[in-house]
Nucleic acid binder design. Structure first.
Lengths: 343, 343
DNA sequence: TTGAAAGCGCTAACAG
DNA sequence: CTGTTAGCGCTTTCAA
């Protein structure tokens, strides 16, 4: 009782038209503008479609409409030993969001990892994708400016730091507010000496997060002097920074970290020194990675609303590709704090 | 000095042909069968292509050749609180492997998470993808049988457990051998009572891994009685199992775990009881997840060669789509042991 | 070795 | 509301 024999080629518009006793165009209309058809015709066509198991050929449709309904996402190699599985969660969220809109996500990598725009051009020129999602936030690489310059249609996860001329749609998470959440939480638990372990000064994202710590500490009437460390996004740096801070005159009783990776380093130092996280010293990370969740003790962390980021991005994508005007092309979402055992 | 004005439509074969002073067909040949052209003609065409920044339109090519050069990969929601970032690493590896072959990876999700084949049909019928990569290993869901039945072209990460009729290409990792590695390692460090913390009996992957523990222990002349626990793939189960095993008459001095998630649970129990992992009790996980790497102390874990798995799968994909015969459609790769502080 | 003609399956524009 | 015509950009015949 198979609907079509295996060796037979797939049904086309013409097949369906014949089956339903209408013209090819009517079938096309049934698919794309069903309201143009009389209900009974529509039903008849729909029935034929179901009976034959017909799906419109995408290549033909793409050729005709000059759209692929694909969005490209460049995935760069995951960094081992880094707690950051942010990308994983984001990809899931993005694929989920695109599903309802008829778009699909095409993954690609750069031949040349150093070139921020490698891979984009070819995919676009060959009409393989309609647009891109770029994740600037992720490592702070300024792909956006290059892409915008070349007229590549894209939406970005991550705001165009400092670039006031940018006009592409973007969605970002308010890292500063997330850190403020962490500071409030710790101060609420009685901590007065709350340290910051962050990235280098030239990391704009890192500085934004840090400003949340500085400002909130001051608002609480607390000092930030001698309580800040800056370095790379590695476990080793976190461990080193914690040692230095703990050895200072007035050792901090709590650490707010720019990332879970760094926080894991802080935890390692605490462990080495026999300090119990959550009891002797509090630690808060950033990203709410899997590693944070399964660590013992589980790490309190700032959680980015990636699912919502994805939804907003896909919304912008729709506007962009439909050439709808985008009045306010930037959106900042607020993170939450996942409170766990380390605080 | 722009190569083409922004408002102008992309160059086509005809544009290039005119530019080079040859026919469209010659340009097509230059692209697909360059050896048919005279060197000087080829050079002239190539130059025109470069000058115009031409890339063949994929939709047109796909329509004509009835191939999309896309492979589908269904991503299911990541499970929170589980250490398993295996999928993330695998996706990266796959995208990397496909790059050189001219294929791209298309991501999709199922509307209905429960239906093991939801989403595949539509993508295939509409010729959106040429084939699929399915990751049976990941959760042990038997997609393969369903897909094979429907004549869907696919390659699988994960062997067709028990299904002797399966004829699709697959690549798998020898979990049993991985666990044997772990047992050897622990016994070599003087452990005699090595426990197993695994999955339910009906998880074929889990049982395969467990057999490595059972057999190897016996080969070392060691007993396995009262040293095994079975349950779900959660941190809580790992913690519970460790408690029960430690409370038994002859407490184990080492734990081999079916997954990092479970191992994290074991570590939690050790922590609660003041037992130092790697000193008082050894623990080995499976998957070498990020969480294992950044944990304090870092978790020894069996590492699957996902990069190699991806390469082999893409090789099979090439054979499959070129209708080349595949003499031996299964390949088993051997994992390695990442030794860290917990053992 | 190069060129001309045909057509993949679809949708946009128009005519009925 | 339905049908006819044309053509998207490419590759696959087949001739020259």
């Amino acid at each position: 009782m198979s609907r079509r024999t295996t060796t037979q080629s797939a049904p086309t518009l013409a097949t369906v038209a014949e089956e339903a006793g209408v013209s090819r165009q009517t079938v096309s209309n049934a698919l794309n503008s069903p309201d143009l058809l009389r209900p009974d015709t529509l039903a008849r066509v729909q029935e034929a479609i179901d009976r034959l198991g017909y799906s419109p050929n995408r290549a033909a449709r793409n050729l005709r409409t000059r759209a692929s309904h694909l969005v490209g996402l460049r995935v760069d190699p995951a960094v081992e030993d880094s707690a950051n599985s942010l990308m994983d969660r984001f990809v899931h969220a993005l694929v989920d969001s695109t599903r309802t809109t008829g778009y699909h996500v095409l993954l690609f990598t750069a031949d040349d990892q150093e070139d921020p725009v490698d891979g984009y051009d070819e995919l676009l020129r060959s009409a393989a994708v309609d647009a891109f999602v770029v994740t600037d936030t992720y490592r702070g690489t300024p792909h956006s400016a290059f892409l915008a310059e070349r007229g590549v249609p894209f939406v970005a996860f991550g705001r165009p730091w400092g670039d006031t001329t940018a006009s592409h749609p973007w969605v970002d998470v308010d890292g500063r507010a997330g850190v403020m959440l962490a500071v409030d939480h710790l101060v609420g638990r009685g901590h007065r000496r709350v340290a910051w372990v962050g990235w280098q000064k030239n990391a704009l994202i890192g500085e934004d997060r840090r400003s949340g710590w500085v400002d909130r500490m001051h608002e609480h009437g607390l000092s930030t002097t001698q309580l800040s460390a800056r370095g790379e996004d590695t476990l080793e740096f976190g461990a080193r920074a914690a040692k230095a801070l703990l050895d200072a005159d007035q050792a901090p009783t709590a650490f707010v970290c720019v990332s879970d990776t760094v926080a894991m380093g802080v935890l390692r130092t605490l462990h080495e020194r026999g300090l119990r996280p959550g009891q002797d010293v509090a630690v808060v990370g950033f990203d709410d990675s899997i590693a944070a969740q399964v660590h013992t003790p589980a790490l309190t962390s700032v959680r980015q609303p990636l699912e919502q980021v994805a939804v907003e991005l896909v919304g912008f994508l729709g506007d962009l590709l439909a050439h709808r005007p985008i009045p306010e092309p930037g959106k900042v979402l607020t993170p939450t704090l996942s409170v766990r055992a380390t605080s």
